[in-house]
């Protein structure tokens, strides 16, 4: 579990990036964090694995205080991070070596490393590529290798900071389905994204604005208010946008729901006739 209490972060230049953040993320939850550039999403994410420390307030990861220097490695054993650009995360010349890099640094014995690397490769569906050079992979494949690196650390929580921003549509789908698979396996997922269709897959959505949490709710609650989301400089999934334009009842997120609402509307209409 992650617990954030009255978190404030002020950068060296005096900019208040986070202010009065309170948030609890339960085990096995899938949380999406959305907000415009500069709203504090990435700064918040970096507190989850102690890349940044609170200026004031506290962040606890499974009860461990991230502000205490001595806890640094324990925090990072609990929380993995996957960033936007897989090219910045991949270090080795062969896929399986790259995945083994983290566990090796922990001094884990070779047989256990082998087991973890194979498990991680299977999880991200990249076992066939274990002897490949990462440079030969597509963007989506590279990003899945970066995810496998986190999986091999056996962390229970993975933070994804815009993992699909640089990918083509196919790569985006691959990464999103990998994230959903990890969630189904019981991992806690924190996904920072500008793609509302991705956020709509989460259990809960956190909306940030100017360093504060503006709203927390289910995707249905968050995306039913199309006008407010647009005012915030955000967007909604296409089905929600069309439902609003067609003045259908609020709370529609998927194509199936939109189809049903249109059918109901027609049925009611013909019934009235």
């Amino acid at each position: 579990m992650i617990k954030v209490e009255n978190l404030r972060h002020v950068y060296a230049n005096g900019k208040v990036a986070l202010d009065d953040i309170n948030l609890e993320i339960g085990d096995g939850e899938f949380i999406a964090v959305i907000g415009t550039n500069g709203s504090g999403k990435s700064t918040l994410a970096k507190h989850f694995n102690a890349l940044l420390k609170p200026t004031a307030g506290k962040v606890f990861v499974n009860g461990i205080d991230t502000a205490d220097e001595e806890n640094l490695w324990r925090v990072r054993e609990n929380v993995g991070m996957v960033f936007q650009n897989p090219d910045n995360e991949i270090v080795a010349a062969i896929v399986e070596d790259d995945i083994a890099f983290g566990p090796e640094n922990l001094g884990i014995e070779p047989a256990e490393i082998r087991r973890r690397v194979d498990l991680a490769l299977d999880t991200v569906n990249m076992a066939d590529y274990k002897k490949f050079s990462p440079s030969k992979l597509s963007g989506g494949q590279k990003q899945r290798i970066a995810i496998a690196g986190a999986v091999a650390m056996l962390t229970k929580i993975i933070v994804f900071d815009e993992p699909t921003a640089m990918l083509d549509p196919q790569g985006r789908l691959e990464v999103l389905s990998t994230i959903k698979k990890l969630h189904a396996q019981g991992l806690t997922i924190i996904l920072i994204t500008h793609f509302m269709a991705e956020a709509a897959q989460a259990d809960r959505v956190v909306v940030m604005e100017s360093g504060k949490i503006l709203k927390i709710g289910t995707p249905r609650e968050i995306f039913s208010n199309v006008r407010e989301m647009k005012r915030l400089g955000l967007d909604v999934p296409v089905a929600a946008e069309l439902a609003a334009r067609l003045k259908l009842p609020a709370g529609i997120l998927t194509a199936a729901e939109l189809a049903e609402a249109i059918n109901n509307e027609n049925f009611n209409h013909s019934a009235r006739k």
Binding site: G35, T36, H194
Partner: peptide, 12 residues
Amino acid sequence: DEPTAGLDPKAK
């Protein structure tokens, strides 16, 4: 080349 990659919906 990918001028809007990484921008939020409004900036995009």
